[in-house]
């Protein structure tokens, strides 16, 4: 499991717009760089990131991103959400070599 950091403001006011920042540990190898022996290292990147907001059985896709080798190692992404109600935020990364990771965070509005 790669280390993932998720930052959400604690207890945001209802209907305020909050910034969600996520960072995950990953080399994002471009597939263009040679290693010490001069051989090109195969590409190994995260290709997709998704964030869903889940309330009960309802799951809404808030934000999704398709990543390319031009994204720096340990991809950092920040986006926004209108905090309308309590629920669960579900973050999902998928990539080369079967990379898949899911994290969740609770959103509690006041």
């Amino acid at each position: 499991m790669a280390r993932a950091l998720i930052t959400i403001p604690p207890n945001p006011k209802r209907n305020s717009i909050i910034e969600i920042r996520v960072l995950i540990q990953h080399p994002m190898e471009t597939g263009l760089r040679p290693d010490a022996e001069g051989k090109v290292q195969p590409r190994n990147i995260i290709r997709r990131f998704e964030c869903r907001f889940i309330v009960g059985d309802k799951s809404d896709l808030i934000f999704s991103a398709e990543l390319f080798p031009a994204i720096s190692a340990n991809p950092y992404i920040a986006f926004h959400l209108r905090a309308t109600q309590n629920g669960t935020l579900n973050f999902q990364w998928t990539g080369d070599n079967g990379f898949a990771q899911t994290e969740t965070a609770a959103l509690v509005v006041v």
Partner: peptide, 18 residues
């Protein structure tokens, strides 16, 4: 470099990355 899709639930159309 990056292609993202947003929903109106986002509240603000803003994206940051490296």
């Amino acid at each position: 470099m990056i292609k993202t899709k947003l929903s109106p639930l986002a509240g603000r159309a803003q994206l940051s990355t490296r």
